[in-house]
Each structure stands twice: as structure tokens, then as C-alpha cells.
Design a binder for these strands. Structure first.
Lengths: 208, 208
DNA sequence: AAACTATACGAACGGTCGTATTATTAGTTT
DNA sequence: AAACTAATAATACGACCGTTCGTATAGTTT
């Protein structure tokens, strides 16, 4: 399955359609609110036909996480990595994250914030998969900051700065969703700018 | 009902027991994961008897939120307000929040972070009640900061500083739950201290 | 003692959940 | 055109959901 002569077969198209809808639903109602019957109805296909693609609810959830990770990488990481390493990339990463959140790539805001909170206190394969993504993401911020430190543009504890930046991102996403209002993004942008200004090396050109 | 000659009657005792269990369950599994059948089984009472106390699932959820708010006020706000207004109280509020989170007053960490994320993107009475609590909480931080500004101990935009502080609290709670590890509290404490140091007026005694 | 009220119970309702089994359709290969 | 396979659908299942109903018990009031 998957591909024949480079051409997609029916089954794979369905799978993609299912997952695209899954990530959207889960970003609003979580991976539990994501029910197979509801998905099938919304897509106009049969519950059993949909189910056959994944074999279990948990496998659907894991596939949904992988699909969301791909979108996240495309929307947040790729644009930021077009900027050269250094303070500029740190700023670009922050901007692309806030844009990813505010433009509602997922209708419920950041997919991972939603479902990671949902599964934070439980255990199992879904929980573990979400930890992996979170660790990967935090290490990516840390590495981006560290590059700026090594370039001599910033003087800071990379892990601490990564923690702070991520805290601003998430606070903005959460507040904007809860109050259906974009003000929080301005607050976050201000927080990020101040925090970075407190650690830039003298003589470094500011990217904003 | 409620009280007779200052003595609690049966029904109220049951209600309290239910709500004490409800907030614990909801802090881990959310207000949806809070099912009436499960609650009844765990408490060793009948589903219908329990249900009769609230009349609907939504009313149970709202009562659970009110119960959690009372506990939150006792655990976070009351201790901090024993310190006089000013920088000291800002610091005390931060410390009591981190203690509230890390000591697992609710087994799933901060009750409100959990369920507010759960309902952030929906609407209805539960969503509205959670907004009210969130607004109340943010205003409380802002007012606490503003008092420090007016006391001349701090020079900052109160709303911005409140946003930042709250971001650190939530980031610490989330990370500690997801990774089952208390390191994040040290990071948060460091972030709070640095942020406050950046705005203290010269000559002010630091409370840490 | 009788009447009344609060509290709790067991059983059942219609609905939805995830899952399994069996059938049907569509596409490709021979 | 026939045979085969991959994809989808139909149907049914047991478990649990929130909710309703009728009833029994216990406490209070008269």
C-alpha cells in the first residue's frame, strides 16, 4: 500500500484526510474528545472503515500526534531556521511561534499545549510520545539560544533562557484562547524583547 | 438543609466528601474525566444518590470549580496576604504558588491550569466560570504588584509584570507534572528572582 | 403516633464509546 | 473476463455515559 508507481492509492488519501481532521479536533477537544464515531460522521465515511486504518484508538492518537508534529515543524521550525544562527534566529523562532499560535494553524491554538496538558498527569504510550515531542522542542530552543551565546551575541544560561521564552509562548497561547483575544501576544512579545535585551552583548544589532 | 442548630446534616457531609474527591480527580483527568459513576464507586455510594445532590453533570462541575477555588484561596492567597503589601508580598505570593503546586495540594498539580486548558476553547457555563476565576486571579497578581509599585519598591508596568510572573508559575507546574520532576520549580524561582531584580528600586531590601 | 422531609438506593432508559466480525465494493493483475 | 487484493461499509457487541423513576429508610416536626 501507501504508494504504487509514485501515485497515492485511495487508502492513503483517506488516512491523510482523517489525520488532518483529527489534529484540528484534538486541538480543541483533546485526544479524548477525538472520538472515532464523530470523526467518521464529520468526514462522511463509515466508522468501521475509518477504524480499520488504525486498528485502535491509541494508534489513531499516536498517528495524530505524529501528524501534528509534522505541521508544527513546517510552521514553526522551518521558517525560523531560514535565519542564520544567533540572536536573529532566537527572535525569529519566537516570532514564528507566536504567529503559529495566533494564526490558528490549529483551530484550538497550539495542538501540543492542549494535548500535553491533557495527558501530563497520566501514563501510557500517548503520554510518552508527548514527552518526546516536548523534550525535542525544549532542546531545540536551548540549542538555538546556545548558538547565539557561542556567536557572542548573547550572554546567558541557555537552559534558563529557553525556559523563560517557552513560558511566554505558552502563556500567550493560553490567554488568547481562553479569552478569545489577541492582546496576550503583545504582552508576550514585550516580555521576550525585554528578556533578550537583558542578555544581549554590547554592540549586537537587535533584530526587531 | 445545610445546617440545623449549627450541626451539619448528613447530606452536607456527603456533598463535601464528593467535592473533595471531585477536585482531586479533575486535577488529574479533567472535568470530563470526572464521571458520576466513577465518583460514586470510589466513594462507595450510589450513582443516583450522588447525582441527586447536584441535579446535573454541569452543576457538579460548577460546584467542583467553586470548591477548588476555596482551597486555592486558602493555600495560595491567604498565606501570601499575611505579608505586608509591597515587594515582600509579591515574593510571598510567588513562593506560596510554587509551594501550592509542588506540594500537590491537588494530585494533578494546579487544578485551574488543568481544567482551564481543558475548557479554554469551548463555551458554556463551565468555560465562563473558569474565565471568572482566571480574571480574578490575574487581577489579584496585578493588584499585588501595583501595591509594590505604589510603595516605591518596584518600578514596572504592573500588568506586564503580572503576566510574566504567572507565565513562570504555569510553566513550572506544567513541566513538573509532565516530567514528574521538580527541577522546573528551581528554574521558575530563578526566573522570578531575576525578573524582580530587574525592577526593584534602589535601596529596597530584597525578601530572598 | 402520624405526617412530612431529606437522603440514599437499585434498576432501567436511550445514547455513545471502542472494538470485532462479516460482507461488499473498487482497483489491479493476470 | 476472471481472480485476487485492498479499501470501505454494515452490523453487532459489551461497557459506560448522564439521567430518570419509583422506593425505602432515617430524622424531624407536629
Amino acid at each position: 500500500m501507501e504508494k504504487v508507481d509514485g501515485r497515492l492509492v485511495r487508502g492513503d488519501q483517506t488516512r491523510r484526510a482523517v489525520l488532518r481532521r483529527s489534529v484540528d479536533i484534538a486541538s480543541v477537544d483533546g485526544l479524548e474528545g477525538l472520538s472515532i464515531g464523530r470523526l467518521a460522521t464529520e468526514l462522511g465515511i463509515s466508522k468501521s472503515g475509518l477504524f480499520a486504518h488504525f486498528g485502535s484508538k491509541e494508534e489513531l492518537q499516536l498517528a495524530t500526534i505524529r501528524a501534528a508534529r509534522r505541521i508544527y515543524a513546517d510552521e514553526v521550525v522551518t521558517p525560523a531556521f531560514e535565519v542564520e544562527p544567533g540572536l536573529g534566529r532566537v527572535w525569529a523562532l519566537s516570532e514564528s511561534w507566536l504567529h503559529y499560535s495566533s494564526s490558528r494553524v490549529f483551530p484550538g491554538g497550539c495542538f501540543f499545549q492542549k494535548v500535553s496538558h491533557e495527558y501530563a498527569g497520566r501514563d501510557g504510550a500517548v503520554h510518552d510520545a508527548l514527552i518526546d515531542v516536548h523534550v525535542e522542542w525544549m532542546e531545540l530552543i536551548e540549542e538555538t539560544v546556545r548558538a547565539a551565546v557561542e556567536a557572542g551575541e548573547v550572554d546567558a544560561d541557555a537552559n534558563q533562557l529557553a525556559f523563560d521564552l517557552n513560558a511566554y509562548y505558552e502563556a500567550a497561547n493560553f490567554a488568547s484562547i481562553l479569552h478569545d483575544d489577541g492582546k496576550a501576544y503583545d504582552r508576550a512579545r514585550q516580555a521576550i524583547r525585554s528578556r533578550l535585551e537583558s542578555v544581549v552583548a554590547a554592540g549586537t544589532t537587535l533584530p526587531w
